[in-house]
Nucleic acid binder design. Structure first.
Lengths: 150, 150
DNA sequence: CCAATTTCAGAGTAACTGATATCG
DNA sequence: CCGATATCAGTTACTCTGAAATTG
């Protein structure tokens, strides 16, 4: 079949931006009931998987500056959702971890987030989901390595 | 082989957020020389492909409020990068389109953006790129349709 | 002294909610 | 009068740059 001139395919950069915009909106609604901001929720999630990360490590992993991350971490600590202990090997480093309250709150919010993710992935064939995740992870690594050359 | 316990796979929601964060950072650097913000660049790109969109249409497509979009559009109009003409069929609607200056500016910036996209996609097998784009587009549509039910 | 970490302070970007006016 | 559009005004969310102190 000779194709009828289709709409030009939007760039990956563009689509990622739009999807992200939509996700943020939805997440904010879903997190509002628990008085959690999106960056706060994100930090909690990361700390659940990787307890003991320092502010510097967290910020690098999130591709934001340590100054931005410290604010998030500070808010979580103030609410006793996160505890930060001095690294035994380096007194300057504070290693963060969830408190029981943090774990509990995170557990109570997770279903709402999972529901959103399920809703978005509904339209994507299961076999392709792994491909998408792998591709995005590759892009993430490249963005982390690129400018810093750390 | 019995697998050694791997790191838990991060969620798609999470990875999209991180990638987007990195992209925004890079884009801002690359656009700074032309005194363009990321939302401004995005709007110019969309208008190149779809001339004649109104502010309301543009904002829906971008998953942001019309109030947010009007600011972007206003800035572009003030710099004479975008022109807005009254719809002949509806005096309330203003249809936007690039001016020659807007087209020229966009053309001069595009290579820098394309370079970033190429860099990010370098690590993704070409055959998988279409899958990623399709999946993300599906997610975008779902986000647009969901809450509005428009 | 240097590099990395933490953290305060001030800006800045980009989005939001609320409200008003106009058009068909 | 209603629904969609445009748009002004004020506010919030999140990140940034700059600078300073601390530690190994």
């Amino acid at each position: 079949v000779t194709a009828i001139p289709e709409d030009a395919a939007p760039s990956v950069l563009y689509v990622i931006g739009r999807v992200n915009q939509g996700i943020r909106r939805e997440m904010r609604k879903r997190l509002a009931g628990w008085d959690l901001s999106l960056p706060e929720y994100t930090a909690l999630s990361v700390l659940e998987d990787r307890p003991g990360l320092s502010n510097a490590q967290l910020s690098r992993r999130s591709l934001i500056t340590p100054q931005s991350m410290i604010e998030v971490l500070g808010a979580l600590e103030a609410r006793d959702l996160v505890r930060r202990d001095v690294d035994p090997a380096h007194a300057r480093v504070l290693r963060a971890a969830l408190t029981p309250a943090g774990r509990e709150l995170l557990a109570s919010v997770k279903p709402a987030v999972a529901a959103l993710e399920d809703q978005l992935l509904e339209g994507v064939p299961p076999r392709q989901r792994a491909v998408v995740l792998a591709a995005l992870t590759t892009m993430m690594d490249r963005l982390a390595a690129g400018p810093d050359a750390r």
